[in-house]
Nucleic acid binder design. Sequence first.
DNA 1: GCAGAAGCGGGGGGCCACCCCACTTATTGT
DNA 2: ACAATAAGTGGGGTGGCCCCCCGCTTCTGC
Lengths: 181, 181
Amino acid sequence: MRADAQRNYDRIVEAASEAVARDGAEASLEEIARRAGVGSATLHRHFPNRWALMSAVFHGRTEGLCERAGELETAPDPHEALVTWLRELAAYSATARGLAAVLLAEPLQQSESCGAMLVTAGERLRLRAVEAATVRPDVSIADLLTLVNAIALAAEKTGPAEAARLVSLAMDGISAHPQTR
Amino acid sequence: MRADAQRNYDRIVEAASEAVARDGAEASLEEIARRAGVGSATLHRHFPNRWALMSAVFHGRTEGLCERAGELETAPDPHEALVTWLRELAAYSATARGLAAVLLAEPLQQSESCGAMLVTAGERLRLRAVEAATVRPDVSIADLLTLVNAIALAAEKTGPAEAARLVSLAMDGISAHPQTR
DNA sequence: GCAGAAGCGGGGGGCCACCCCACTTATTGT
DNA sequence: ACAATAAGTGGGGTGGCCCCCCGCTTCTGC
């Protein structure tokens, strides 16, 4: 990639970050291009569709969440670590309007994508919890991420607190006496 | 309402139903108006925004789900009845692309809305399950509907089967031994 | 049957995503 | 240093969208 192309790429992502923070994932691509000081054609060449741009925007934040997963790997309680991480993911997704939609929209297994990063990071936490026998082994990390993202998406209007509450609910299960069934 | 206005209203809803079945909730409003044989202004007069139209489109289906809830009220196992109903709701939402988004978008307590109908219908099933002590009393029907709709929204790409599976997962809880925590 | 109001829809404005193509600019081999 | 070249650029065009204005049509109560 040529140096000027790289510079334009970075400027677009930066402008997009600001726009998304203000207007959510439905921000105008044209305005992003205008603020970045590039033509709209340049934006569309670098990012063939809206999701591609959003994916780039959220890449940094996603890395932060993966680092957090690394920290939690050494936590004493594996189950608590997994739940905490998922709750943080939900809270962040609910704040960064559009992240949840992006994660759900793109195929989860596509490498280099935000989703793939979260899968590999989360899988370790899940494995630890399964080994500790606090999580059913037939529940995949994809299941958990989909569930959490779904909740974040639904809670975008109601706020991060509600999102975290629903995550806890789903994790504990809503049944009063699950062992009797 | 004048007779011709009513006729146009019905034709718009019918055209919208077909369009939604084909293209999902993002169907073109202009094309819906065209197919209904009315001007776009008429469509926008009857339905001030997209959600209003979608709400009308899904009204009939929602009534069907409410009837189903009525049937399930006499089922022998209250817990199974609740879970079955929620699973059916999820499966239908995942099929009727956009229903979930509509239910999440409109305020749940607004009377006459699809959401309100589901709340009253589902509340009875939930109460029966609470009385049978198989569901925690602090879980509201709004919690359950939000959770199920969130899952349906997330599973729109993967299909109804996956949606039903995730609902079961959330209801059972993903923990291996919930009673130990 | 008629007056008035309720309803209608063509057309236009503003905005959008996306594409085409003539022009500019960085890179590379000599 | 410099020319050849391939990569990159952005202005403008296209088609579509939502929504609104306003003169015209059609229904309804008397």
